[in-house]
Simulated scan of single mutants.
Amino acid sequence: MSLCCEQRWKNLTEELTAKMWGIFDETGIFVVLCRHGFVLLMADMVQSGELAKYPLAIVNALLDTFGVDLGIGYDIGCGHSTTIQHSPLGPKAAWLNLKMLVGTFHGHAHNRKCQLDYLATYILGLRLEDIEGAEWQFFRLNGLEAIWIYFAHLDTFEAYANLSMFLVNNYKQAIEILDTEESLKYAMEQAGVTEDMLKSRIQEEKAYLNTLLKELQEETDQMEYYQLLVNLADQKEKFDEAFGESSTVNGNTRRHAHENYNKVVKAVQATECCLSIEV
């Protein structure tokens, strides 16, 4: 069976995350923002990397503050969900119905089974939220030293000022989506698709992935064929450059371009025969 994200992602290993430059007492900050962009909590990461103790402390504080039915986005939310379950915080998180999530940017690097459980796209109630606000803030922090002062300024002079525009833009986007509701319902009716069917499909896909021991050979072959086509286009471009009328490359470069192009052509042809592809 394919490994879960927490088993195969290297940035979830304590040994790796703890390796930082020893000359600094403080190596960074762990920050959490609300969906409107306000900074809720910050923690110094002192002489360590992004260890589990920081998000655990943050989650505990958020649960104490907001209580039941809290959703928290984290780029490794899948793995941290397991960490929470096996920590002293587990019973409290379960009782308050905490849901760890993965943002729509980071989530597409996770495997499909993980996406169905944690990706914001598939979680009912999140609607337009992408849970990637922290990434935008850290992008703006590049090269900035006075981080605490910056965040205080951000909350006072930018987050409040931009909140109205944020709500208006979200409202407009929601209205645009709702305007397509009737046409969507009509298309679903014509196709014989119901809302219950859409919900059950996700559960069916989860069940299928749980029983999948390895990638289907057919899908693997198709992906390899696609990659060969990409390589063919690349080698064809190099071949044309080497043998073009205005080319100034030497004889060895031409020979290599010719050999590489022919090699990829043969590989494509062999794969097409195996897959019974007629061009």
Rank of each mutant, 00 (worst) to 15 (best):
Trp95Val: 04
Ile76Leu: 06
Ala18Phe: 05
Lys206Phe: 03
Leu56Gln: 01
Arg8Leu: 10
Ile175Cys: 10
Leu228Phe: 05
Lys53Ala: 07
Asn231Thr: 04
Lys236Tyr: 09
Ala61Leu: 00
Gln235Gly: 03
Glu181Ala: 15
Phe151Lys: 00
Leu144Thr: 09
Leu275His: 06
Gln203Thr: 12
Leu178Glu: 12
Asp64Lys: 04
Ser164Asp: 11
Glu176Cys: 13
Phe24Arg: 15
Ser164Leu: 15
Tyr225Met: 13
Lys199Phe: 08
Ile277Thr: 07
Ile147Glu: 01
Ala159Arg: 01
Phe138Asp: 03
Thr271Gln: 15
Phe38Gln: 06
Leu96Asp: 00
Leu40Lys: 01
Val268Tyr: 02
Val102Cys: 03
Leu232Trp: 06
Glu15Arg: 09
Gly251Lys: 14
Glu6Val: 09
Arg255His: 08
Ser246Trp: 05
Glu224Leu: 14
Met45Leu: 10
Glu6Asn: 12
Ser164Cys: 13
Trp148Cys: 12
His153Ile: 12
Leu184Thr: 15
Gly192Gln: 06
Leu63Val: 01
Trp9Gln: 10
Ile202Ala: 10
Thr83Gly: 02
Leu167Phe: 07
Ser200Lys: 15
Gln203His: 12
Phe138Cys: 10
Val59Pro: 00
Ala191Thr: 05
Val46Glu: 08
Glu215Ser: 14
Phe105Met: 04
Ala257Gly: 14
Trp95Pro: 02
Ala94Gln: 15
Val102Met: 03
Gln137Arg: 07
Glu259Leu: 15
Ile149Cys: 14
Leu96Met: 07
Cys34Arg: 05
Cys78Met: 05
Ala134Tyr: 04
Leu62Glu: 00
Ala57Val: 04
Gly77His: 01
Val265Lys: 03
Glu219Asn: 11
Leu209Glu: 02
Glu278Ile: 15
Pro88Gly: 03
Gly49Trp: 01
Asp155Phe: 03
Leu126Trp: 09
Leu229Phe: 06
Trp136Ser: 11
Ser48Ile: 03
Ile131Thr: 06
Ala61Gly: 01
Tyr225Leu: 09
Ala257Tyr: 02
